[in-house]
Design a binder for these strands. Structure first.
Lengths: 160, 160
DNA sequence: CACAACTAAGTTGCGCACAATTAAATGAGG
DNA sequence: CCTCATTTAATTGTGCGCAACTTAGTTGTG
């Protein structure tokens, strides 16, 4: 799969080393984020993925099918089903079969889940501070990451 | 997460939304990388973390203690021990107690492990192509990610 | 020398991510 | 109406990442 060089590539070996470093840096940053979120969310008893699921529900408090949450977070039922069960076990959400479509399971916040929102409010600022990035850097980074993800997804099976 | 293009935003609420998006984008990109690497490494029978461990050994073929590999990859024995056992099971590496320090376990490539290097050579180019990033973008991204990781690590327990 | 402190690997337990499979419900076409 | 492909969750199995703990070997200090 030799493609026309999109650039005057400097040197093969040089270029070939770069990618690991990018994927590696990416993984390292993601894990570092994980550590910071772990600290910030410990009091709430949430993991970062659980926090993301709660964010989805806090933003759109109407009951949502698992499918919708999965599309928002790019996760499938293999990940979400046990995660949501744990949130249910913690009393933060309730799951029930939809009446209209019995295939669908709708998830809604319990009162405890809604109440947790207040305690989660200071979290984002804590994270922003921890990143130490300027607003401009953050925007640059996000733009690059989104382009990168789009390219990688396209290079793969296409959809998923 | 679908968000409107950030525009004028020295606003608190706006700022507080940004962070999720960055961590989220980061995770999404890392997982997208995972998918591409999965495809590229399938023939080799390696996962991406296993590939990273092999890279460390290919770059420095002398036997290395688990500790050294862990420092290179930022992984602890809880992750590395089973991973290296799987590589050993695949016949790619051998592990043995160090003579000088009986606490240490040194890992070295087997002949099969060395031979695999040849088959892994085309992988990086495939990844570079899939990213679709220019060299300049890649360098910018990497620099930002490393700064970010440093900041996040510092904001955490300090060491780990 | 004895003993505490430290270090390197390994083990266990939990949660996440993903592939593959299963089960149940829905919808479209004959 | 009945069959069949599709859709939605859940389940199973594998591997990673990390915290907490264990085991064994090493080092420092009195």
């Amino acid at each position: 799969m030799t493609t026309p060089p999109p650039f005057p590539l400097p040197d093969d070996a040089e270029l070939l080393r770069l990618d690991h470093q990018i994927c590696f840096s990416l993984n390292a940053a993601a894990r570092a984020f994980g550590g910071v979120y772990r600290d910030a969310l410990k009091d709430l008893g949430l993991t970062y993925p659980q926090y993301l699921a709660m964010l989805v529900l806090w933003e759109e408090p109407d009951p949502q099918p698992v499918k919708a949450i999965g599309e928002r977070l790019r996760l499938d039922s293999g990940t979400l089903s046990p995660l949501l069960k744990r949130l249910e076990g913690a009393g933060l959400v309730a799951r029930e079969r939809s009446a209209e479509d019995e295939r669908s399971v709708v998830v809604r916040l319990t009162e405890a889940g809604e109440a947790l929102r207040e305690r989660a409010l200071p979290v984002p600022r804590r994270i922003v501070t921890a990143t130490g990035l300027s607003l401009e850097e953050a925007l640059t980074l996000r733009a690059l990451l989104e382009r990168l993800t789009g390219n990688l997804d396209a290079a793969q099976g296409g959809g998923r």
